[in-house]
């Protein structure tokens, strides 16, 4: 637990963080198997996630990429009947160890969802609520401004912070959700197809934002859009699904290598659009 707390304390100083060491593993998945009841959803997934890089999860529908993503901040706990074997290490500490509180994990490993889901409250409260429940003691106005600025939303909403967040457009809502996640100062941000419900222009802005955020945060993104994966990610994990509909990791490599020189035949077929 000490590791977790140290990590949490560290993440509060996110702006003044020292430069990351190249290819430092922040999260490691070791032989992760996930079941939904008796259904084996994902088998033997092992992969590293490097600090301050963008890791993309791609693969056909039903390959378990979102399931693996949710296992990283224990969001799967919320799904009835979901069980997990294997290890998910965060700073070398197993997130599924008995003494780990999932609530604390989710503060350090934030999440942005497929469909923009701001709280039905004001824009201001959307940012401050997460900080408030986590015991934030600083200046809330400043927190709102910096969070919205980092999510490239400040200029659009600074005059209507008291307005309900649901009045924003889909793309703005999604950036607000990112800002809301940033406000609790996480180290890692998980994004589950964050642009799939948005139009191309809003998608472009989210992608720009991801490239900007990666200076300060580790990002893991699930996407159906291979162009998006190649544009924003440093590493890509390609998941496949076997005959029993169980997902598994087919190939993991630096993005450029995976897209230009895939070593597995299935990867090549998938990225060239032969199926999926």
């Amino acid at each position: 637990m000490k590791v977790m707390q140290a990590a949490a304390e560290e993440s509060f100083e996110f702006l003044g963080k020292s430069e990351a060491v190249e290819n430092q593993e922040i999260i490691t998945l070791e032989d992760v198997n996930i079941h939904y009841g008796s259904f084996h959803a994902v088998k033997n997934a092992s992969l590293p996630i490097y600090e301050k890089q963008v890791t993309a999860f791609i693969g056909p529908s039903g390959c378990g990429k979102s399931t693996v993503l949710r296992s990283i901040n224990r969001m799967n706990d919320m799904i009835r009947g979901a069980t997990i074997d294997g290890k998910v290490l965060f700073h070398g500490h197993d997130l599924y160890a008995k003494d780990v509180d999932p609530v604390l994990i989710r503060r350090s490993i934030g999440m942005v969802f497929q469909k923009p889901n701001p709280f039905p409250k004001s824009i201001y409260e959307n940012i401050t609520w997460g900080a408030k429940i986590n015991g934030f003691k600083g200046d809330y106005n400043e927190l709102v401004e910096t969070s919205l600025q980092k999510a490239a939303l400040w200029d659009e909403v600074k005059d209507k912070l008291k307005e309900n967040a649901l009045r924003l457009s889909g793309g703005q809502q999604q950036r607000l959700c990112i800002a809301r996640t940033l406000a609790v100062q996480p180290e890692v941000i998980l994004m589950d197809e964050p642009a799939s419900a948005l139009d191309p222009i809003a998608t472009g802005r989210i992608e720009e934002l991801i490239l900007e955020l990666k200076k300060y945060y580790t990002i893991v993104i699930v996407t159906h859009n291979m162009g998006q994966a190649s544009r924003v990610s440093d590493n890509t994990a390609f998941f496949m699904v076997d005959e029993g509909r169980t997902g598994y990791l087919e190939e993991y490599a630096p993005t450029e290598q995976l897209f230009l020189n895939p070593t597995h035949k299935k990867t090549e077929e998938y990225i060239s659009g032969k199926f999926g």
Binding site: N73, M75, M78, V103, L104, R106, R107, G110, M111, V112, F113, N117, P118, F119, W129, G130, I133, N134, C177, R180, T181, A183, V184
Partner: peptide
């Protein structure tokens, strides 16, 4: 989910 996502109990 969005509430749990920011570390709420």
């Amino acid at each position: 989910m969005s509430s749990y996502g920011v570390g709420a109990t």
